[in-house]
Amino acid sequence: MTALTPGLSPESARRAAGPGRGAVRRLAGALHRRPRLRLAALLTAPLLWLVLAYLGSLAALFLSAFWSTDSFTSEVVRIWTTANFEELVGSPVYRTVALRTVGVALAVTALCAVIAFPLAFYTARVAHPRRRPLFVVALLMPLWAGYLVKVYAWRLILSEGGPLDWALRPFGLSGPGYGLTATVLVLTYLWLPYMALPIHTALAQLPDNLLNASADLGARTGRTFVSVVLPLVWPAVAAGSVFTFSLSLGDYITVQIVGGKTQLIGNLVYSNVTLNLPLAAALGTVPVAVIVVYLLAVRRSGALRSL
């Protein structure tokens, strides 16, 4: 303060600042001298949220997975049992559904990456720099519409004799109809922005000179892509894949609307919640476990090191 207002004594400078500002300054000064207090002020609210709402509900999920229900009243019986998990592992139906869910999530992730990469390459490196923000907005446009609106729009598109069938008829083809393929297709559409945005950002940040240097040293375009672009953008693909994979793993509404008779884990959880809550909870732990395994695998690939 004295440095900023030369000629004023500290006392008169404080008076000029007014009494209200003085209290704020004292508080700021006190915080400045107490780093622990500062940290507490910063983290109390988010930590409360994280522990109570977030980890708390996860703990409740795990706990109730070890309870059972009275088969007549559907009341939850709070006795420790591993029966739910035994049923999960033992029943071929649950195993098939779990594998199908993981398969759908992997297929959606792979499709998103394959579609997003060329798009992001165009928006980040080929398009005229002035038009790039416009293309990024276009890339994210699907996020502006509500989830249900988009899925019902796809239900229309995929319906028998609908726009997709009509467009494919001249080629002697027809749309996939409602089912597993439609589910993968719609989920890919829904989660594409989550894959495209990180890849776009990574490609945009790639220094031109790295690509020039590679070409300068004799590498053709394909070689530069494999040896320079892909390794440097890989962390972004991994980050995007965490979104697309986990979002697909937990989805049950899209399957209900365009999946026909297809069942995913989400559907089983949903249909068991009222009748057999502990079994639903046990089913709910499957995606959690899969995600943990997936994150560990991604981490092992080294892709998260630079995040």
Binding site: P207, N209, L210, N212, A213, S214, A215, D216, L217, G218, A219, R220, V228, P231, L232
Partner: peptide, 19 residues
């Protein structure tokens, strides 16, 4: 193209491959 020329460049920012 650059890869068809018998010329190598030392860049101002070095352009070393970080990975």
């Amino acid at each position: 193209a650059p890869f068809e020329r018998d010329v190598h460049t030392v860049f101002q920012d070095y352009a070393l491959f970080p990975h």
